[in-house]
Amino acid sequence: MANKIQLSPKKILNKQFQIDFKGYSATEVDYFLDTIVEDYETFANMLNDSYEQIERLQKDNEALKAKVSHLEKEKLLQQDNIRSMEENLSSNVDLLKRISSLEKEVYKDKD
């Protein structure tokens, strides 16, 4: 019950007090209540703006999480591509070394 707001700007604005012989000045009370209503309306607007901002930030956060996930998958794919290219390069270098050795042997006999 601590988080429940009991008054609204409309309830404050429409509140009627009994007039007593030794009561408060009605104009003073009305002025004070008008100030309270303005504060409540300002508070309500700030709260609504905060909720909208929270919702927008949560959507942005989800979008960024999805983007990070996509980029991590891309990174893994790129790493796999690099690994396979390195393996191909290594086997190509080995083949070139063998060909070079064979050429040396073939041309060595011709000299």
Rank of each mutant, 00 (worst) to 15 (best):
K110F: 11
S84D: 14
L76G: 12
K65P: 03
F17E: 15
E52M: 09
K67C: 08
A44N: 15
M1C: 04
S91E: 00
F17V: 03
N48M: 13
K59R: 02
I82P: 00
A26T: 06
L64Y: 10
D60Y: 09
I5T: 11
N92V: 10
K11S: 02
F21G: 10
S91N: 05
A26N: 14
A26R: 13
T27P: 02
E52R: 11
V93C: 03
A44R: 10
A26D: 02
N45M: 15
P9W: 02
D39A: 09
L102S: 14
K108T: 05
L57Y: 15
E72R: 14
Y51Q: 12
K59S: 03
Q53R: 08
M1N: 01
P9D: 01
N14R: 01
R98Q: 08
M1Q: 11
Q78M: 09
K97Y: 10
P9E: 07
N48Q: 10
V37F: 02
I5K: 06
M85K: 12
S69H: 09
E55K: 10
K108N: 14
L76Y: 10
N81V: 07
H70F: 10
E62W: 07
F17M: 04
L64P: 08
D94F: 03
E103S: 14
E62G: 06
E105K: 15
Q79C: 05
D111V: 12
L76T: 10
K22R: 09
Y107I: 00
K22M: 11
N14F: 07
I5Q: 14
N88Y: 07
E38L: 10
A2K: 10
L77F: 07
I54N: 14
L89P: 01
G23K: 02
F43M: 14
S50Y: 06
K15A: 11
Q18P: 06
N92P: 03
E41H: 02
I36G: 00
Y51C: 09
E87D: 12
D94M: 09
Q79E: 07
E62N: 07
K59A: 07
L71P: 03
Y107W: 11
I54F: 09
S50V: 07
K97S: 04
A44Y: 09
Q16E: 01
D34H: 14
N61K: 12
A2T: 02
E74P: 05
L89Y: 01
K108E: 05
D80P: 01
E72M: 13
I36Y: 04
N92G: 05
A26W: 15
N14D: 13
Q79W: 02
P9K: 00
V68P: 00
H70V: 09
E41F: 00
V29P: 00
Q79I: 05
A2L: 08
K97G: 04
D111S: 14
V68I: 07
V37K: 01
D60G: 11
T27Y: 07
D49C: 09
L71N: 11
Y51P: 01
Y31H: 12
L102V: 05
G23I: 01
E87T: 07
S91G: 05
E41P: 00
S101E: 12
S69M: 06
I19V: 11
D30A: 15
K104Y: 13
F21Y: 12
M85T: 06
D60R: 09
